[in-house]
């Protein structure tokens, strides 16, 4: 009952947040000087042409009127038509979404692996010089944002030691048998490991750039929680029972230390998704972020709106899921 109430309340605040985002974006991009319609017509178009096309896109009405029309459409699943490509916004955005999701999820997996290994190794080697080295590496990884890591990785593994691709999502000359845009996933399902390897080689560096700061956050918090747990009586008990240090860390301390880290990963995952915008640009990766920047540069109002709303929706949904997961995972909250 409690849980249902929580979900209901959270759904309402989520709706309010998304509405707020929609209003702000809508107003912000419409106070812009410069008519997007004038930009898409060839020079020499008459005032009448501009007026006719403005009417076609509904840009001649007042902002509240435009918002009413737009939100009415959104509720019916119609996000309008992109001004530059003249295709439905929803289709464009959904076509790019898989690329961004695959990138974000791969980065998340990498961050969890790197951060987890850092924390466990740091705990295992606590009190030694190696622990200090891991702390320093962690501090570095934390201080530098993904954009800079991306550039460093391009130099290191794209130029100095060219082992990975540094632009695009897949080698353009390859024949693609895919029926969805989840290339990474579908290549695996179709057992096309040649394509899979090519895709991974393209995704590896952007995903790693996104993963490094998050892995440092994970490593730091998990190590801290492990450190606290290692002092608890039950851990000492299992040690006196004769279990080795590795067993004690992995089987006794870790399960109890991991909860705060899981919550944090959820929150930080939204930052990672936000980071895809510039990382995709940096690596010319054809995802939502790259589409978004193009849309902003081209003043493609309906497309910008659609993408920002989608990003905001992803953010709020991820937060919602994290809160619910936390409520189910944490026994103290479950019975509260």
């Amino acid at each position: 009952m409690q849980l249902l109430q929580t979900i209901f309340l959270r759904l309402i605040t989520t709706a309010v947040t998304l509405f707020g985002v929609a209003v702000i974006v809508f107003v912000v991009i419409r106070i812009v000087p410069g008519n997007p319609i004038a930009m898409m017509l060839p020079p020499g178009a008459t005032e009448a042409d501009i007026a006719r096309l403005s009417a076609l896109y509904g840009l001649d009405k007042s902002i509240p009127e435009q918002f009413a029309i737009w939100s009415g459409g959104v509720l019916r699943g119609d996000f309008g038509t992109s001004i530059t490509t003249r295709q439905p916004v929803l289709g464009l955005v959904l076509g790019r979404l898989p690329a961004t999701l695959e990138l974000a999820i791969m980065a998340l997996v990498m961050a969890v692996l790197i951060g987890g290994v850092m924390a466990l190794t740091g705990t295992r080697l606590r009190g030694t010089r190696s622990e200090g080295a891991i702390d320093v590496a962690n501090g570095m990884a934390l201080s530098i944002p993904d954009f800079l890591w991306g550039l460093v990785l391009i130099l290191a593994f794209g130029v100095l030691l060219p082992v990975f691709h540094i632009s695009g999502r897949i080698t353009p000359s390859l024949q693609l048998p895919f029926s969805t845009n989840f290339y990474l996933f579908e290549s695996l399902v179709r057992l096309r490991f040649d394509l899979w390897a090519d895709i991974v080689s393209h995704m590896f560096l952007p995903a790693l750039a996104l993963a490094i700061p998050l892995s440092a956050v994970i490593g730091q918090l998990l190590k801290q929680s492990l450190k606290e747990t290692m002092h608890l009586d039950y851990v000492t008990l299992s040690r006196t029972k004769g279990y080795g240090e590795n067993h004690v860390i992995l089987h006794e301390a870790l399960p109890n230390a991991i909860l705060p880290t899981l919550t944090l990963i959820g929150v930080q995952f939204t930052f990672l998704i936000g980071g895809t915008v510039i990382i995709e640009r940096l690596f010319s990766y054809e995802g939502l972020g790259n589409l978004a920047i193009d849309a902003v540069i081209n003043r493609d109002l309906p497309l910008i709106q659609g993408i920002v709303i989608l990003f905001a929706a992803i953010f709020t949904v991820v937060n919602l899921v994290v809160d619910l997961l936390y409520a189910t995972l944490n026994p103290r909250l479950r019975h509260a």
């Binding site: 605040t13 309010v16 947040t17 998304l18 707020g20 985002v21 702000i24 974006v25 912000v28 991009i29 106070i31 812009v32 000087p33 939204t270 998704i273 936000g274 980071g275 915008v277 510039i278 972020g289 978004a292 920047i293 902003v296 540069i297 003043r299 910008i304 993408i307 920002v308 990003f311 905001a312 953010f315 709020t316």
Partner: peptide
């Protein structure tokens, strides 16, 4: 409430959008 709404914006995209709007 404002902070909540702000947190739902992808910050990089939002800043690019703002500068594009402001010139």
């Amino acid at each position: 409430r404002l902070v909540d709404i702000w947190m739902a914006f992808p910050p990089v995209l939002f800043s690019i959008l703002l500068v594009a709007v402001l010139g």
